[in-house]
């Protein structure tokens, strides 16, 4: 694990993320896998910006029927009275995931994935376009495809879909 990854881990632990996992780069293609709450995505972007990172892409994943593959779960409370659904950030079905791929263009390699789960019924989270200008188009595209609303985004009009599009093709219940 590189120095940069260690520094970032400290930064993010101060933010108290829902989960933070070192991943095997060879197997996964990234080094750090961080899950944050929707309210934390801007802070996460600010950390990455401060460390000189660049935002490679923003995208969504629609978890309609299943909670999805999520090996990176924080030690779940074992006591029986607490419903697992109540655990903050624990992946459940009927959610959407927003994924931010960060990388740095310096010499040290440490790819970081920041994830965030939002309810499928009300997919909203703050925009990071104020931190990374490039997020503007990525978030517009994600809004096109998933209908995820990025609060505070300057213009969420369709980017790749027709200007009058009222559908979101990457939703799993969208019929081809």
């Amino acid at each position: 694990m590189s120095m940069l990854c260690e520094t970032l881990k400290e930064d993010f632990l101060a933010l108290a993320p829902l989960a933070l996992v070192d991943t095997d780069y060879k197997a996964k293609g990234y080094q750090l896998d961080i899950t944050v709450a929707p309210a934390q995505v801007v802070e996460a972007a600010t950390i990455m910006n401060r460390r000189g990172y660049t935002l490679e892409a923003v995208t969504g994943v629609d978890w309609l029927a299943s909670a999805g593959p999520k090996p990176a779960k924080k030690a779940a409370p074992a006591e029986g009275e607490e419903e697992p659904v109540e655990a903050p950030g624990a992946p459940v079905a009927e959610q959407m995931e927003v994924v931010y791929d960060y990388t740095n263009t310096g010499q040290e390699l440490c790819r970081v994935v920041v994830r965030c789960r939002i309810p499928r019924a009300n997919p909203e989270l703050p925009t990071v376009s104020g931190v990374f200008s490039g997020a503007n188009w990525h978030e517009r595209e994600t809004h096109d495809f998933f209908g995820i609303r990025f609060l505070g985004h300057p213009d969420l009009s369709p980017l790749l879909l027709p200007e009058d599009a009222d559908f979101h093709p990457l939703l799993k219940d969208f019929r081809v």
Partner: peptide
């Protein structure tokens, strides 16, 4: 699981994120 890969294409970084649900069809392909 989900996997990321990047290559240097003629115009810059081409990144591809795939999510597999263990079937013969990708669950998500970014």
């Amino acid at each position: 699981g989900d996997y990321y890969g990047a290559v240097e294409a003629a115009r810059g970084t081409f990144g591809i994120r795939v999510v597999s649900d263990g079937t013969n069809t990708p669950y998500r392909m970014k």
